[in-house]
Design a protein around this nucleic acid. Structure first.
Lengths: 238, 238
DNA sequence: CGAATTGTTGATACGTCTCAAAAATAGTGG
DNA sequence: CCACTATTTTTGAGACGTATCAACAATTCG
């Protein structure tokens, strides 16, 4: 078990609050002042059914986007970190079709439809690229969820989150999941108990260290190796 | 069993071959002559790794788009009909990240990067909307695959295909799946045997009639009703 | 501090996968 | 057109992984 005094420290880490532009989209939009919204945990950035048009750039914190059906089913479509865009999937729609909820205190920058269209073709282009990369991300998760067993899905999830945090300047080894086991399971199409069991086993194998929502990736190469499927499984999704 | 003389008739149905523009994208692009490519069954429109840039509008036939990993896993990301776009997910990428394969003889219209950018902001806008709607579609399938049992997934698949064909002017009752059970299973994250069993049972229940790849939706309301989850299952994905 | 939420582990049930074998269908070349 | 092969579809039996249910511990929150 690693030092648990780091619990929830990352949110107050200076990098999370730096005022530099996180992605090239904000670079392109300099001159257009976004509306800045500070979000408390569990508060909504937007809800399905609300008027759409703006896109929200995550500046700090961590958010989830979810889809719900009339018959009560619900699905988390992604966890969004600094630099990620939310709300673009409603482009061309009158209203949002999904929710965006803060998992921790954070800030989003809202760019209105007007700002985006006034910003010129370069921004349009950039936005289309972001949409395309969201599709590639989604397809990748559809692939993983369809062809990996529970344990491997959890590994893929942890490695993905670690890599994204690392790309933001963090260690990538120590991550604090700000979401519940249930939310992880929902995203990975697993029950929360299955997520718990997978993590327990990964800890037993010495690959990770679990302390509540603080996870240490003890052996990233070992974790990555887990993802290369065994010969018997190679045929599964083929 | 319904009259099997309709087998494969739909592909030669006049509607499939009409020369009118199928979607509003082609409307907007009038004046820009696309390169028309006739595809034989099993031939590729494009492959992962090939130079990207063009988008392909399905004019006739039916296609699948698939994603593959280095470790041999493979996943069909969607089945594309007349009016659907393929290749947009590679926007902003040097090369394609997925494959597009014809399941039957069909035609695609290729619009090059140059044509698209020369066509003006309206087309860019429209393209972005298409990307957004692909994301919503993907999210919807991720939700269904994560929260529906095998049988319901198959029902959702059949109803979706039926509705799309109906929107194209077909009956929506008689559909010829031009894909194998294995491909359906791959898309729905199921084994082909499970797809077969689901269809057999649906036939037993009198909801559909199966004759090879020809399916008749005998009771669309009954099928739809199946999708409204039982109270016990309501809690599953929550 | 109590109350609600979240996390953990166990025992069991159930759905889907896996393996196998055969039938049906499609594709190929003589 | 037929014979021949390869592919696809179908059904069965059993194994396996994950869901489900339950109980309790740990944590968070008002």
């Amino acid at each position: 078990m690693f030092d648990s005094s780091t619990t929830c420290e990352e949110l107050s880490h200076p990098l999370w609050n730096r005022e530099t532009t996180p992605g090239s989209l904000a670079d392109l939009l300099q001159g257009f002042e976004p509306r800045r919204r500070l979000l408390k945990p569990k508060s909504h950035v937007f809800r399905a059914g609300q008027a759409a048009g703006s896109v929200f750039l995550v500046n700090s914190g961590i958010f989830k986007t979810c889809l719900a059906t009339s018959d009560g089913r619900e699905r988390i479509t992604g966890f969004r970190l600094r630099g990620d865009l939310m709300g673009m999937e409603s482009l061309g729609q009158e209203v949002h079709s999904s929710d965006a909820v803060a998992l921790a205190t954070g800030e989003v920058w809202e760019y209105t439809r007007q700002q985006l269209s006034a910003a010129g073709p370069q921004v349009q282009q950039r936005l289309a690229n972001e949409l395309a990369s969201e599709i590639r991300r989604d397809w990748r998760w559809m692939l993983d969820i369809g062809s990996l067993c529970a344990e491997k899905r959890v590994v893929a999830f942890l490695l993905d989150l670690g890599a994204r945090l690392q790309a933001m300047g963090f260690s990538g080894r120590h991550l604090s999941l700000h979401m519940t086991r249930s939310e992880i399971g929902n995203f990975l199409a697993l029950q929360l108990e299955t997520v718990v069991r997978a993590m327990s086993r990964l800890q037993l194998l010495g690959l990770i260290a679990v302390d509540g929502r603080e996870i240490e990736l003890r052996d990233t190469v070992g974790l990555s190796r887990m993802l290369s499927v065994s010969p018997s499984e190679r045929l599964r999704a083929a």
